[in-house]
Amino acid sequence: MISAGHGPTIVLVHGVGDNAAGWADLIQALSPHHRVVAVDQRGHGFAPRFEQFDDPFGQLVDDLIAVLDDEGPALVIGHSMGGAVAAEAAIKRPELFRGLVLEDPAWIDRPREELELIGQARVLSKEMDLKDLPRAIAGKMSEGWSNQEALAWGMAHFQTQREFLETGVVAQERPWKEVQGDLKGAAVPAVVFVGSGQGAIVDKQELALPYVEFPGAGHCIRRERPQEFLQSVAQFMRDAL
Rank of each mutant, 00 (worst) to 15 (best):
D63V: 11
F50N: 10
E116T: 11
P32S: 13
R110E: 15
P105H: 05
S125L: 11
I137M: 03
L115S: 11
A138P: 00
D69G: 06
R42M: 13
E127I: 05
H34G: 04
V67F: 11
F50G: 09
E149Y: 00
L117Q: 14
G139Q: 02
H34L: 10
Q52E: 14
G72K: 09
G72W: 09
K131S: 12
D40P: 13
L124F: 05
L102M: 05
A87E: 04
G119K: 01
E127Q: 15
Q41M: 15
L124P: 00
G144T: 02
V85M: 05
R135Y: 09
Q148V: 14
G99H: 10
E116P: 01
A74F: 08
L64M: 09
E143T: 10
Q59Y: 05
F97S: 01
L96C: 05
K126P: 00
E88I: 09
I91C: 09
S146H: 08
E95N: 10
E51W: 13
A89R: 08
Q52Y: 08
A121K: 06
P111I: 06
D104K: 12
R49S: 05
E149K: 10
P111N: 08
G82D: 01
R49I: 01
H44V: 12
S125D: 11
V61T: 08
I137H: 03
K140Y: 13
A84G: 09
E113V: 12
D129S: 10
A86I: 02
F53R: 06
V76K: 12
F46C: 15
D54I: 06
M141A: 05
I108A: 11
A152V: 03
G82T: 11
A74Y: 13
P111M: 06
E103Y: 04
P56N: 07
K126C: 03
L115V: 07
K92E: 14
A86F: 07
G72I: 03
Q59N: 04
L75M: 07
V37Y: 07
P111Y: 02
L68F: 08
L117G: 03
L60V: 10
E113H: 14
Q52D: 13
P111R: 00
E113L: 07
E95R: 08
G43D: 05
D54E: 14
A89H: 08
E51A: 12
R110K: 14
D129K: 11
E114Q: 15
G43W: 01
E95T: 07
G82Q: 08
G119M: 00
P56V: 09
I65Q: 05
S31K: 13
P94G: 07
E149M: 05
D70K: 15
G43Q: 01
A74C: 08
H34F: 04
L75V: 15
G58E: 13
G139Y: 00
K126T: 02
A47H: 06
E88F: 02
N147R: 15
F57K: 06
